[in-house]
Design a protein around this nucleic acid. Structure first.
Lengths: 197, 197
DNA sequence: GTCTATATTAAGATAGAC
DNA sequence: GTCTATCTTAATATAGAC
């Protein structure tokens, strides 16, 4: 992560790719479109990334990293209530921090498949882990549906263009509130200082 | 709509296309993949549909139709409480009826774009209409977030492979319950009869 | 670091035989 | 109704000049 002039195009490239991915989907975005948006040629794009898959992974990486970390931290808690609270607050924070990305994650089959092939057990692993913690051991159908609606709803709402005008603070407050209601957690005014990550 | 042997392949084709769309996304599904899955050639596929867009539209059509009808029925109600109740119940029914399709709708950029170009004002029109009714006139941020989480969460949960094993009845009951809670509507379910997967 | 030019593959789509 | 064969276009990707 040396911040030099050499990284400038790379950074712009990833930002542009994310934007195009959210507009057209991963599979619907060609390297030509990315190159055009940057005012360079396809060949120049290939100087920075060997394959399109590499671009996709690099775009998703920050979100995957944070999510991975969050799941580990939550799983390390002893009491289930603490696990759920930490996971919910951390997930909302993550959604706010990576608004566009998370919406892509929860929806775009192209992104999900790309991640699948790269690092860990893919998105499924994360989904199962999150749902497992949120719905608890031996969950009722109600608990499973609640957890699923909470997770996907928070992710989609966070990335929704319809709510893009809401400030981070307002959106975070409301998403937390919704999540607590769905998961049967006590509602609080100020979120406990669970993390700064 | 003459039900003859001529329509058999067409029907199988649409079922197969929907399945592949949910697995790989619309843009990630080629006519070759559809043809292979059916054991025919691309050319045979083209006998039934002139373009890929036509296939996409035909796959989405039942859902679009039902959604359109639902919005019209809801908007025709006078009292807002009635509008919300009707919309919520209708939407959950729709999700149950078209499980896989609705998840595609709320996520796949390829599908959304395809619909965009075809008939009405596209998905945006529906989204705005649904959210407008559910969040009410001059809504607070809380109301907007609640409506968004309810809609997207219900849609995603309905199409989720993780919940595919839940029966229609159980899933409908739970989705309705979640929706009522999020939208501040009275809950009408039988208190303890949650069980039996 | 970016270019031009090109190789390769697969996509959507059509023509015409059976 | 399905086939073989083919067209056209656009995608990923590479080679080599500047």
């Amino acid at each position: 992560m040396t911040a030099g002039p050499a990284e400038d195009t790379r950074t712009r490239l990833l930002q542009t790719a994310l934007r195009l991915f959210t507009e057209h989907g991963v599979e619907g975005t060609s390297l030509q479109m990315i190159a055009d948006a940057l005012g360079i040629t396809k060949a120049a794009v290939y100087y920075h990334f060997k394959t399109k898959a590499e671009i996709t992974e690099a775009v998703a990486e920050p979100g995957v990293r944070d999510l991975d970390e969050l799941v580990l931290r939550a799983a390390a808690q002893k009491r289930r209530g603490t696990q759920v609270d930490l996971l919910l607050e951390g997930f909302v924070d993550l959604v706010i921090r990576h608004r566009a990305l998370v919406a892509l994650f929860s929806s775009d089959p192209g992104l999900v498949r790309a991640i699948e092939k790269s690092a860990h057990g893919g998105m499924e692993g994360f989904g199962q882990a999150l749902l497992g913690i949120l719905s608890g051991p031996d969950p009722t159908p109600a608990a499973r549906v609640n957890a699923m609606v909470a997770l996907t709803g928070i992710a989609m709402a966070g990335g929704s263009p319809d709510l893009a005008r809401l400030s981070d603070d307002v959106l975070r407050t409301e998403l937390l509130d919704v999540g607590r209601r769905l998961l049967g957690r006590p509602r609080r005014r100020t979120p406990t200082a669970v993390s700064t990550l």
